[in-house]
Amino acid sequence: MSQSSEARPPFPPFTRATAIQKVRMAEDGWNSRDPQRVALAYTVDSSWRNRHEFPQGREQIVQFLTRKWERELECRLIKELWAFEGNRIAVRFAYESHDAEGNWFRSYGNENWEFADNGLMHRRYASINDLPIKEAERKYHWPLGRRPDDHPGLSELGL
């Protein structure tokens, strides 16, 4: 396995434990809402599909995430391992956010990830659906940032 200076363990092939670790690392990064930090988890030539957008490479990923978090305010995300094999991981996720008018949404989706040998994500394909919710229906109430370890995951929340 060739490891560059950008290596990001754990490395493929994944075990159940290392796949779960990789999923939590991705969740933590996205909950930082720091586009520069998040982009470092992807190869420089990473290929994405996210809804109707197809970012290619880190620069476009940063631009995409910057736009996303300017629209999706107070975003809190939970990811959960669905399946894994070799250098691929499938996750399901849900996040809550609101728009500038104060309308809340819970966005549900699935992602398929493929990793390079150095542990950076090379491909990310996301399918996402949005559900308008009332603020009183929110399930994610931790302070912005990393989800606390004792906060329930998707399955425990019935999502």
Rank of each mutant, 00 (worst) to 15 (best):
I78W: 02
S4K: 01
S107L: 09
E59A: 08
V23F: 01
L154G: 06
H141I: 05
L40A: 05
N129Y: 12
R67M: 11
R71D: 11
R49N: 09
F14S: 05
P12M: 00
R8N: 12
Y140N: 07
W142C: 09
I89Q: 01
E114S: 12
S46T: 13
N87C: 04
G119V: 01
D99V: 08
D99T: 14
K134C: 10
W82P: 01
D117P: 14
L154S: 07
R88H: 14
E101M: 10
T15D: 06
H122N: 11
P143T: 14
Q63F: 07
D149R: 05
H52E: 12
P152A: 05
P10T: 07
W142E: 03
L144A: 04
R92S: 03
Y140R: 10
I20K: 14
N31V: 05
W113S: 05
R51A: 15
S97C: 14
D149V: 11
A136H: 10
C75M: 10
N129G: 13
A94V: 09
A39Q: 01
L144C: 03
L157M: 13
H151C: 06
K68F: 13
S4M: 02
L154T: 08
W142I: 08
S46W: 02
Y95E: 08
P13K: 03
A83W: 14
A39G: 00
Q3G: 07
I89C: 03
F115C: 04
V38L: 10
P152G: 06
T66C: 02
E72M: 08
I20N: 01
S107N: 14
L73A: 00
I133F: 13
P143H: 13
A94Y: 04
M25D: 11
S46G: 14
F54C: 03
H52M: 09
R146M: 09
W142T: 05
W48T: 10
A136P: 03
R106Y: 09
M1H: 11
G86F: 03
R88G: 07
S2H: 10
T15G: 06
L144P: 02
E80N: 02
M25H: 08
R146K: 15
G109Q: 09
V23G: 02
G153R: 03
K134H: 14
W113I: 07
A90R: 10
